[in-house]
């Protein structure tokens, strides 16, 4: 356990620089985005109202009011989130391959540590989870700050004020990242973590059997997906619904746990018996 925690800390430390840069980009882009968008909106309003002498009501009718939903739909806001998402998808692979590629033989050291090799896998997964949650928390903290910035920059008459939960509920991708119920949260992130473990298993297949392993890895991903989606595939295949929503929910949770456990078990087997440096 102590070594596992040390490994988690170690893995996070190794990614810290990139991680901080990602957080920095997110903060800067979103805050600058709010200001730029607000200024543009106000500038436009001034021009239309004072130069073109359009009444305020008509301006609002024509251009709409400004609110956080405009901000969260913009590239300033989505851009860094997409960047972070891409970085973490890349990191799922990078966290393994950086120890193998080129002259770097750090994987030798990791595999020769006097600790269960499963700890290496779990620590890498944990590092990813912690950092993803970190990013989500940053986003949660940023939302009220951004609302406030908007208030300072756009006069009352031109804006729609929204609470943080209103902002989230009005935006489909934010709602995936930050669901409003605990169960939804478990579902979203449970699926996310399951995918991480499936991909880890695929990577370890590749690292064990190289080209053949890459193929096995892809096949494994397909099998895992089919198992997990089996009830839905079944229903679509028969064009009927056999289960109540609650039943589907329970079955999916069980299948999710099953697929995750299977992935971890296979990864452990590969790490102990088959992995090749």
């Amino acid at each position: 356990m102590k070594r596992y925690l040390k490994l988690v800390n170690f893995e996070i430390g190794r990614f810290m620089k990139i991680y901080l840069v990602l957080i920095g980009i997110t903060i800067l882009s979103q805050l600058i985005g709010v200001i730029v968008m607000a200024k543009n909106y106000v500038a436009n309003a001034n021009e239309v109202i004072f130069v073109d002498s359009l009444p305020l009501e008509q301006f609002i009718e024509q251009y709409g009011e400004m609110g956080m939903m405009d901000v969260v739909g913009s590239i300033w806001f989505i851009g860094p989130i997409a960047l972070c998402a891409a970085a973490f998808i890349f990191y799922i692979f990078f966290i393994w391959y950086r120890d193998w590629v080129g002259k770097n033989t750090f994987i030798y050291r990791l595999l020769m540590l006097p600790t269960s090799r499963l700890n290496i896998l779990l620590s890498k997964a944990t590092a990813i989870f912690i950092m993803v949650f970190g990013l989500v928390s940053v986003q949660l903290i940023l939302l009220p700050i951004e609302s406030m910035l908007l208030k300072w920059n756009v006069p009352f008459d031109f804006r729609i004020d929204m609470t943080v939960s209103e902002i989230i509920n009005n935006n489909s991708y934010l709602f995936i990242l930050i669901p409003d119920s605990f169960i939804q949260f478990i579902i979203n992130y449970g699926i996310g973590f399951m995918v991480v473990f499936i991909l880890f298993t695929a990577i370890l297949f590749e690292r064990s059997f190289r080209w053949k392993g890459a193929l096995l890895g892809i096949i494994y991903c397909a099998i895992a997906s089919i198992i997990f989606l089996a009830p839905l595939i079944y229903e679509i295949g028969f064009e009927a619904s056999f289960f109540y929503t609650e039943e589907i929910f329970v079955i999916e949770i069980i299948l999710g746990i099953l697929v995750t456990a299977m992935s971890i078990w296979l990864s452990k087997l590969l790490l102990n018996k088959k992995v090749t440096v």
Binding site: R3, F10, F106, M112, L113
Partner: peptide, 30 residues
């Protein structure tokens, strides 16, 4: 791994570490 060790032909540490950090790493785990 506490009884037998392997010294490969290339260094098994992260190049950005200092020698002191590398030794600390070893002390932490072995």
């Amino acid at each position: 791994y506490e009884k037998i060790t392997f010294i490969p032909d290339a260094i098994t540490m992260i190049p950005t570490m200092t020698i002191a950090e590398a030794m600390q790493f070893m002390q932490d785990y072995y």
